[in-house]
Design a protein around this nucleic acid. Structure first.
Lengths: 340, 340
DNA sequence: TCGCAAATTGACAACGTTGTCAGCCATGAC
DNA sequence: GTCATGGCTGACAACGTTGTCAATTTGCGA
């Protein structure tokens, strides 16, 4: 039993190829009775249209690409799930494309991908989504794209996007720590190549300013979105003459490193030190104590991005949209221990 | 600049379409000088063959599918990376397909996927890879497949596979705990729908028997590959009249739950309780203390599976291959505290 | 009943590639 | 000089689908 083609369906339903095509593509102007017959034939033969032939002929594409370079499995899986949900709903395929965001020929690489695999467009995850030069190159190639980016507001830069207000979320976490009574709050940066890093820092900074908490350069350390940098950073902060009573790590992995460093230093979290993360990864629930963090609806965001891309391809009007993360309070934060 | 087709290349190189095709496909019987000319034209026009047209015409496929239903992001990402590495090397595409392993129409779903997207075959991750009924259905549809499975030895059941010796690895972990001096070792099962679970249990059991350590039913609890079941299971074990001095969780997530339960019970790991996991996920490095576990080269295994599948499609002889995990000793295990 | 527009249907070409097969040319043996 | 050989090349059809456009049918008012 070779797989059935549109030809077999046409023969069985006693109509022309084109009519079957019309039924499949839900074009109007097919008589109900004819449509019924064709649908029955499709059912009987278990026919499915061939995507290759379809996109070859129609010059439309039935798949989109998901481009990322992010070492965080939780994030990636969530993005994939979200994008897939949108794709399945719209009858699209999804082609994943992990890549090196610092590769010199990234634009060409992506163009080849789109061309060879006949992709209708790309969803770009950070940090690719924030490289204006790359975006311009892709636009020059006429590749439709939607970005997932970190921004306090709609960037209005002409490239459609779904944006996440990292700044606001970081503000909320910092404000929460201040309200608990913390006055010396350490901040550990994420990777500089991610726009979310400065955004999160700005939120931290603004909260301190708004609440009149003195800033201190020694409490802010640069680093990467990694456990190791969290560990190292925390060790340095805890070694200060006047160490912080709370540390805000720019993501959960950093915060995990902070937890480890605190334990290594014999400190009891949250009583000797409060720790906050960012992301609400499963780790933040499974660590001990579980982490106060900021929940990003990554899956929803990615789904929305994919939906936006498909709408754009279909020629619809595309409205950027913002998502605000939400504070999640767990066991790793508490009021500071009163000074002896 | 519309993307170049084989036609443009032919014109530029002043040869026929077919000759260009020959050059692209590395067929012999093209004069060196002609080949040069064609290659130059390809270079100049930046031509890339269109995969849709190619697979449409040649009835060969240039992509494979990766089928999984596994809630563990670390595992999935590793599998994806491995499969992608093989695909890129061989000029194949990869289509990911997360699905519900208990879905009633899974075989039909996968057949449609293969058919619609013209996939050359499927790599099946656990637990799909262990459902004989599913395998037989797919075979009846003539879908080439390679499985990643848990087995102590080549299953010789006619379905090609890459197998991982979970039993042996669990034996190694248990033996290590026994050598440290533990005589009461708790065991927390993973999900029954995964064949790796009984395999790991068998390794545990065999080690106890070989070393003459008495078995005890109360030390063995069923559950799922989850943090919560690890937490609950550990709480029950620690509440026994004679609690275990070590607990072996069937994966790192379970072990993470055990760590949390131990901490909640005021126990100090590893001095009051040794904990071992399985998988060497990043969590096992980042927890405190870091976990003794078993390293599976998931990425390599998946890469090998994809390579095997592609070789099979090309008609090559296919040899199953086994991978042995490796014991990784970290801070969560120590000799038991001497009885007071 | 006829005429005409609208609704419905079908014939055919085309998308970009590769398989088939035939043709050309140089070579070397007779 | 003829003929077979083998290396190289090209013309053409075909893969399964949809776009174009023309043909046919239907519905309906006159």
């Amino acid at each position: 039993m070779g797989t059935a083609t549109i030809r077999d369906v046409a023969r069985q339903a006693k109509v022309s190829l084109k009519t079957v095509s019309r039924v499949i593509n839900r074009e109007s102007s097919v008589r109900d009775e004819t449509r019924e017959r064709v649908l029955r034939a499709i059912e009987q033969l278990d026919y499915r249209p061939d995507l290759s032939a379809r996109s070859l002929r129609s010059a439309k594409a039935y798949a989109i690409g998901l481009v990322y370079d992010n070492p965080n499995p939780y994030y990636i899986i969530a993005v994939q799930q979200g994008a897939l949900a949108a794709c399945r709903e719209m009858g699209f395929g999804l082609q994943i494309h992990p890549c090196d965001s610092r590769g010199p020929k990234l634009a060409e690489e992506l163009r080849d991908l789109v061309h060879r695999s006949r992709l209708a467009g790309l969803v770009l995850a950070p940090p690719m989504s924030e490289r204006m030069a790359l975006l311009r190159e892709l636009a020059a190639y006429n590749i439709p794209l939607v970005r997932v980016i970190s921004a306090a507001e709609d960037p209005h830069d002409g490239f459609p996007c779904v944006f996440v207000d990292d700044r606001d979320a970081a503000y909320a976490i910092t404000a929460y720590l201040i309200q608990l009574g913390h006055l010396r709050i350490g901040f550990l940066w994420g990777g500089k190549q991610h726009r979310s890093s400065p955004e999160r820092y700005k939120g931290y900074e603004k909260a301190l300013r708004d609440y009149g908490v003195p800033m201190s350069d020694e409490l802010v350390l640069e680093g990467d979105y990694s456990f190791d940098d969290g560990f190292r950073g925390a060790r340095r902060l805890l070694g200060l003459a006047e160490p912080p009573t709370a540390i805000f790590g720019s993501n959960d992995e950093i915060a995990a490193g902070v937890l480890a460093a605190a334990r290594a230093a014999g400190l009891h979290v949250p009583y000797d030190l409060s720790v906050a993360g960012f992301e609400d990864s499963p780790f933040s629930r499974h660590s001990w104590p579980s982490l106060t963090t900021s929940r990003q609806r990554t899956e929803l965001i990615a789904e929305h991005a994919a939906r936006l891309l498909i709408a754009q391809i279909h020629g619809g009007d595309v409205e950027n949209e913002g998502f605000s993360p939400e504070l999640v309070v767990r066991g790793s934060t508490a009021p500071p221990r009163p000074k002896a």
